[in-house]
Every structure is written in structure tokens, then in C-alpha cells.
């Protein structure tokens, strides 16, 4: 009996070790001068010091952050507006909004970037602006996550009841939606935005195909560094992974808090 109980633990441990080895190795690699034998030699922090005094790296961090803010804010606004109209006034249209929002799940990455590129690259209008193409592509890529987050949030707070109650108290539907429903699903919006941050932070395909090397983000910086200096690149790697881990950790924490709050509400 005891043996049987140990088996699941062993499986989980094995998978975890397998998943963590590449990460652990890269972290150690970034902290030592030489690692050609079994053990690394010469502990140092030079890589990190050099990195944080490198203007180009700091600029790439700044770009990564800036590239998150605009598409995420824009997507949240357009999805909220679309869902407001469809759920309250035109429930029949909701299905089509859902389909549009779900397509990017399957066509993300290469296909999306080359289709946008081939459509607008020769355009004489403002649409041929590479940065604009990139922002548009990011909006589409994160669409499924933002949509699902907001939709699930609406379901969890029983939106129709909430709006009815607000209306009975004299509020208009518009007011009820933006001043009652939206604040109540704020945590769902934040969680899905953080997921979207993770996606945009990790993007290489879209930015490479659409913006080229004109606006390098952290991923492109890593790619360029790893070609000539692998220890330096490992430091970039550690910083990228740390940022994404912090983002995932935040998502997990917020999700836990959210479900706990819900459970408490149900108990009350």
C-alpha cells in the first residue's frame, strides 16, 4: 500500500526535475566564468552588471513593456464594448463575436504575421506602418485570452441579475455595465491581461516578421546576444524568465484569491 502511494509522488517529481533542469543549468551558467567540465568555475556577477549598464538592453526592456500596454488596453476596451452590446442588446450576435475571438487560437504566430505582412506591406496608406501592423497583430493574438477572461468573469458575477438590480435602482444599462459590472469583474480582467503580458513578452515571431529588427524587444535582444556571447545571453535569459515567472505567479495568486473570495461569498 505504501509503495502505491509513493508512485504518484515519484512521477510528479520526475516531471518537475525534467522541466526544471534547463532552467537551473542556464541560471548557473550565467553566474560563472567557465563551465566546460562537470562543475562550473569562477563565480561572478559581471554579466548582470554589464547588462544593467547597457543602454540597448534597457531600451529593449522598455520596448517590451510599452508594446504590452497599448494592445492590451485597446483589446480590453474593444472586447468590453462588443460584449456589452451583444450580451445585452443582441444576444444572437454573441456567437459571431465568439468565433472571431477564438480563431486566433489556431492561426497565431507565423500564419498571422505573414498574412498581415503580405496584405499591408505595399500599402500606400498608414496601414503599412510596421509598428501599427505589430500592434494590430498583438491585439488579435491576445483576443482569445481577453475574451475568455471577460466572458468568464461576466458569467461568474451573474451579469443579467446584476444589471437588472441596478436598473431597478434607476441606473441605465450603460451605467450599470460600466459602473457595476466592470468593477466586479476587474480581477478577471487583470488576470487575463497578465496572461496577455506573458504572451507579448514571449513573442519573437510577430515582432521579427512584422517589425524586423527596427524595434528589438527583449526576445530579439536575447537572440542577437546569444549568437556572439552565450554567457551574456544566459543573463538576458535569466532576466526574461524571472519576469515571466513573476507574471505567472501574480496570475496564480490572483486566481486563488478570486476563487477563495467566491467560495466565501457562496458560504455567506
Amino acid at each position: 500500500m505504501k509503495e502505491k502511494r509513493a508512485a504518484p509522488l515519484a512521477v510528479m517529481l520526475l516531471v518537475m526535475i525534467y522541466l526544471l533542469i534547463p532552467l537551473a543549468v542556464s541560471i548557473v551558467y550565467s553566474l560563472f566564468r567557465k563551465w566546460t567540465g562537470v562543475l562550473p568555475e569562477g563565480f561572478r556577477l559581471d554579466n548582470y552588471i554589464a547588462l544593467f549598464t547597457d543602454g540597448e538592453f534597457l531600451a529593449s526592456v522598455g520596448r517590451s513593456i510599452a508594446m504590452c500596454i497599448v494592445p492590451i488596453a485597446a483589446t480590453i476596451v474593444i472586447v468590453l464594448l462588443a460584449l456589452f452590446v451583444t450580451t445585452i442588446y443582441f444576444p444572437k450576435l454573441e456567437k459571431y463575436v465568439q468565433i472571431i475571438c477564438m480563431i486566433p487560437y489556431t492561426i497565431q504566430g507565423v500564419i498571422l504575421s505573414v498574412s498581415i505582412l503580405s496584405l499591408y506591406v505595399g500599402s500606400p496608406t498608414f496601414l503599412s506602418n510596421r509598428l501599427l501592423m505589430l500592434m494590430g497583430a498583438y491585439c488579435v493574438v491576445i483576443l482569445p485570452y481577453i475574451y475568455q477572461g471577460i466572458r468568464n468573469g461576466m458569467r461568474a458575477v451573474h451579469m443579467p441579475t446584476l444589471i437588472e438590480a441596478a436598473e431597478m435602482l434607476g441606473a441605465s444599462k450603460l451605467y450599470a455595465f460600466f459602473r457595476v459590472v466592470v468593477p466586479n469583474i476587474l480581477s478577471a480582467i487583470i488576470i487575463s491581461s497578465l496572461l496577455a503580458v506573458g504572451i507579448i513578452f514571449g513573442d519573437y515571431v510577430l515582432i521579427r516578421n512584422l517589425a524586423g529588427t527596427s524595434a528589438p524587444n527583449m526576445q530579439i535582444y536575447l537572440y542577437q546576444t546569444m549568437k556572439h556571447d552565450s554567457t551574456m545571453a544566459s543573463a538576458v535569459f535569466v532576466i526574461i524568465m524571472l519576469t515571466t515567472f513573476i507574471i505567472t505567479l501574480l496570475v496564480l495568486l490572483l486566481q486563488n484569491k478570486d476563487t477563495k473570495r467566491r467560495q466565501q461569498q457562496v458560504k455567506e
Partner: peptide, 28 residues
């Protein structure tokens, strides 16, 4: 406890892809 650690690791590593993943495997 182990279960929680397991899902936490899975969630974290789920964003580990693209260039960083290629880099880690080049080192390994």
C-alpha cells in the same frame, strides 16, 4: 503540497518557449 508545487512548476514553465527555450537547450 507536492501537487501544488507541481501545478506551480507547470504554470511557470508553460511560458518557457521560443528563443529562451532554444537557448537553454543549446547550453544543455
Amino acid at each position: 503540497k507536492m501537487n501544488r508545487a507541481f501545478t506551480a512548476v507547470l504554470n511557470m514553465v508553460s511560458n518557457f518557449a521560443g528563443i529562451p527555450l532554444a537557448f537553454a537547450y543549446m547550453i544543455l
